[in-house]
């Protein structure tokens, strides 16, 4: 589903290479985790895939079900089925959460040539999904993420994911800022979306999220490359010994 080949990326304004040849293949139905120390390029990878500005691709390729991602705009990538759950969800004063969700859902439907969701149908669906994530009516009415706690923001990300039904979900440090209960809630939300047609790329520092969202494959990223790939046991190894051993081993 997601195919990344020798992806090389630098900052647009600075002569600083961040990704130095990333290779990664994620198949439908799989959950992959990327772990790695600070500054290894994990978040950059998620931003570059989702189309954030400020980066320059200097080599390689990335595609989603055969569509060249790097050649299209952020909104087109979303319509193709790519979703990024932000590490720091953005507050947008003046835009109601509900308006935001509905605009997004219908924009994607329109881009795919599908019929837009009626107000009534949308309301029914969003209420049901919000309830599962313990998102109350007030949170839906308030401006996007404004005044939300850390946990509420992350639940709101998962609600967007549930509404948009992407095929490739990237979770960028979704566990950061979450207490145990919130992590459980968010993980349940993610697990409910797991399906044979959908894939996940979970970026995290810590093993504990992976206790809840069980990965099929774990990658270790360091200095702009994936340096080691293994099963869930690799995450445990990181948890017990830190990155130093692994990095020493591959150096």
């Amino acid at each position: 589903m997601l195919e990344i080949k020798d992806l090389r990326v630098k900052l647009e304004d600075e002569d600083k290479q961040i990704l130095k040849g990333v290779d990664l293949t994620v198949n439908a139905g799989e959950v992959h985790a990327i772990m790695g120390p600070n500054g290894s390029g994990k978040s950059t990878l998620s931003y570059v895939l989702s189309g954030r500005g400020g980066y320059e691709v200097t080599g390689g390729a990335a595609s989603l079900d055969g569509t060249d991602l790097l050649d299209i705009e952020a909104e087109e990538r979303a319509a193709e089925g790519l979703f990024l759950a932000f590490q720091y969800p953005v507050e947008i004063p003046g835009v109601g959460n509900m308006t935001f969700l509905r605009t997004a859902v219908n924009a994607q439907r329109k881009a795919r040539g599908e019929e837009e969701m009626s107000a009534g149908e949308f309301l029914k669906v969003v209420r049901a999904k919000a309830k599962e994530l313990k998102i109350d009516a007030d949170m839906l009415k308030r401006p996007v993420n404004v005044g939300f706690s850390g946990g509420e923001k992350k639940r709101n990300e998962i609600l967007q994911m549930a509404m948009l039904e992407p095929k490739m979900c990237i979770l960028d440090e979704t566990d950061s800022g979450l207490d145990v209960d919130a992590m459980k809630l968010v993980s349940e939300g993610v697990n409910a979306l797991r399906s044979p047609e959908r894939a996940f790329l979970v970026i995290t520092h810590y093993q504990r999220l992976l206790d809840h969202i069980k990965p099929d494959v774990v990658h270790i990223m360091a200095d702009g490359r994936i340096v080691k790939t293994g099963g869930p046991e690799l995450a445990l190894e990181v948890e017990n010994n830190g990155y130093a051993d692994i990095l020493a081993e591959v150096a």
Binding site: G51, E73, E75, V90, E91, I92, Q108, A111
Partner: peptide, 13 residues
């Protein structure tokens, strides 16, 4: 940042 957030959800620029 807000603009990218909206676009990443599929809302055209």
């Amino acid at each position: 940042t807000a603009l990218f957030y909206l676009r990443s959800r599929g809302v055209p620029e």
